[in-house]
Design a protein around this nucleic acid. Structure first.
Ligand code: FES
Ligand code: FES
Lengths: 145, 145
DNA sequence: ACAATAAAAGACAAAAATATCTTTTATTAT
DNA sequence: ATAATAAAAGATATTTTTGTCTTTTATTGT
C-alpha cells in the first residue's frame, strides 16, 4: 500500500500542476492537467470538482475557462489537500487500526509510530501548494511517469 | 487513509497476538485470536491462511490444533509481515504515485518524503514479531478497541 | 474404524475505490 | 440571439478490498 490513496495522489499532483501553470495568471483546462500529470481525465475532473466545491481551487466555465488557484491560496499547506481527500487518519490514527490512538490504551507500535506520524504531519503542514512553482517551471521536479 | 490496509492491520495484530500467546508453547485457535484482536473471524482466517502458506506463521488442524509461531521466527522483522500483505510500495514507492521513485525524475516531495519513508522502513525492520511479548502478557500494550 | 475438532480451500457477497459516460449549466465570441 | 466551449452534475460501470458461507482435509481421542 502507498501512503496516499490514488485519488489523493492525483489531487496533489493536479494542485501542484495548476499552481505552477497559473502562478502568473490565466487558467488551465482539464485536458491539459490530465495530460500534464498523466491521470484519467474524467476521474480527475471529479476530483477537481470536489476540491473546487471545498474552495481549495477555483474554476470558470466556457471558452478561456479552466482551473486556477487564487494567489492567496498558494501558501496554504499541502496537508489541507490531503485532509480534504484522505481524511486525517494519517495524521492522528493508530497504525494498527485501534479505534483511538492514545497513551492510555496504546498499541505496541504507538511510541515509535507517533514520532513518524508527527513528521509526516509536519512535512505536509509546512509544505505549501505553491512552494515548488519555480522548480516545476524549470523542470527540476516531475509530476508524471 | 491509514498507513496500512485493514488486512495488514489485522495481520500485524494477529501475529503479535499469536506470538505472545504461544511464546511458551501451545497453540491458539482462530476464534480466540479473532476475539483477542477484535476482527471478523472468517476474514482473519483467510489472512492467516495466507501468512501460513508463506511460512510466517504455523498451524495444525484438528483437536488441540491452532496457530503458533516457531520460536526461531520470533525475531523476524515486522517488515516481512507488512511486505507479505501490503507489498513494498510503502518502503520504496513514490509518495505521489510516480511509476518510479528516483533521484533522476523526482516528484516535488521526493527528498523530504524519502527521509520519512526510510524511517518507517527502519522502524519496521528493526521491530521484531516477538518483541512485545512480555508487555502484551502484562497488558501494557493493547491489540483491540 | 469412528466421531469430533479445527484449519484449508473454494465459492460467493457486499462495500468502497477507481474510472467512464451522458446531460446540464455557465461563459465567451460571433 | 446563437453557436461554441469547458466545467458541473448525475448516472453508470469496473475493479479492488473487505467480509461471509460452505465444503473439504488433516488431526486427535475414543
Ligand atoms: S495506539 Fe496505535 S499508534 Fe497510537
Ligand atoms: S519520486 Fe516521489 S518520492 Fe521519490
Amino acid at each position: 500500500m502507498a501512503i496516499f490513496s490514488k485519488t489523493c495522489e492525483y489531487a496533489i499532483r493536479a494542485v501542484f500542476y495548476i499552481a505552477h501553470k497559473t502562478a502568473n495568471g490565466g487558467r488551465v483546462g482539464i485536458k491539459d492537467i490530465a495530460t500534464g500529470i498523466d491521470s484519467p481525465e474524467l476521474y480527475l475532473a471529479k476530483i477537481l470538482q470536489d476540491l473546487s466545491r471545498k474552495g481549495l481551487i477555483s474554476s470558470f466555465k466556457g471558452p478561456n475557462g479552466g482551473f486556477f488557484i487564487e494567489p492567496a491560496l498558494l501558501n496554504k499547506p499541502l496537508s489541507e489537500i490531503v485532509e480534504a481527500v484522505d481524511g486525517d487518519s494519517l495524521f492522528y490514527g493508530c497504525a494498527l487500526g485501534l479505534k483511538q490512538c492514545s497513551e492510555i490504551n496504546p498499541c505496541p507500535l504507538h511510541n515509535d509510530f507517533k514520532a513518524i506520524r508527527d513528521k509526516i504531519h509536519l512535512l505536509l503542514s509546512t509544505t505549501t501548494i505553491g512552494e515548488f512553482n519555480s522548480e516545476l517551471m524549470n523542470g527540476l521536479f516531475s509530476l508524471k511517469k
